[in-house]
Amino acid sequence: MGAYLQPDTLDEALGILAREPVTIAAGCTDLFAATESQSLNGTVLDVTRIEGLRRIAKDATGWRIGAASTWSDVIAADLPPAFDMLKQAAREVGSVQIQNAGTVAGNICNASPAADGVPPLLSLDAHVEIGAKGGPREVPLAEFLTAPRATVLMPGEMVTAIRIPDVSDKGESRFSKLGARKYLVISIVMVAARLHVQDGFVRDIALSVGACGPVATRLAALEEALRGTPLAGLPDRLQPDLIASALTPITDMRASDEYRREAAVHLLRRVLDDLTLMRSPV
C-alpha cells in the first residue's frame, strides 16, 4: 500500500510533489469514479488540510478561491452578484452530499468537457494559480484546459487557487444547465452569462457555453457584437451563427450535436431574458 500524506502547509505539499509522483486528492468525488482498480497506486497527497487553502477572500487584485474550497463553501461565501452564476452552478453539481466534499479546483483539474464550474469561471475571466517548489505561475483558465481530461499542469505542480481579477467582478450573472432531469445529472448543455450594464447600454458581457466541445468556450465574436449596444432588446440580438461557429458539439448518449447547438441558443436567450428583465424599470 502507498502512503497517505496530509500535509498542514503548502511548502510541505510542494516538497512532496517535487520528490515523488503522487495522486492529488481533495473532495475525492471524481477520484473514485475515475479509479477503476481496487487500490490507489503510489502515494496519495491529501491537500484538504493545508493551511489557508480553503479560504475565499478578496485581496488588492481580485478574488481568490483557495483550491480546497468546496462547492458548499462557494454557496455560503459573501460574493458580489457577478458570482451568482458560479453559486447557481454550485447548487447543481451533483447533490448536497457531493457539494459538501467536491472542490471547485478539483472540478477544473478533472477537466471534463461537462464540468459545471468551467463556464461560470470562464465568464469571470478566471485565472488558475499553480504552485510548485520552483515557484508559482498563473495561467488563464481558458489556457489551463487543453482537451477533455487534460490540463497544462505538470508533474510536481498543484493548483493552489482560482483567481478572479477585480475588473471582472462587475455586473449581474446567470447560469443555466440542461440535463435529462433537474438534479444529480451530467449536463447536456450549459451556459453562463455575466452582463455589466451602464446607462442602459451593455458595457461588458461575458458568455460561455459548456458541454458543446472538448472544452467549454467563451463566445468572443458574439460578445464583441453585443458590447456597446442598448440593453433593450438584447436577447433578440443573439446571432445564432456567431454561437454555432464557436461550438463543436459531439453526438453521444445524452444528445445529438444538432440538439446541443440549438439548445445552446435557447439557454443563452433564457439567461439574457432573465438578466434583461431584472434590469428593466418596473
Binding site: 497517505y4 486528492a25 473532495g27 475525492c28 468525488t29 473514485f32 496519495v44 491529501d46 447533490s95 448536497v96 452530499q97 457531493i98 459538501n100 466534499a101
Partner: peptide, 8 residues
C-alpha cells in the same frame, strides 16, 4: 452530510 462511499 457526505457520501461515505466517496470518502477515503
Amino acid at each position: 452530510r457526505i457520501n461515505a462511499c466517496l470518502t477515503l
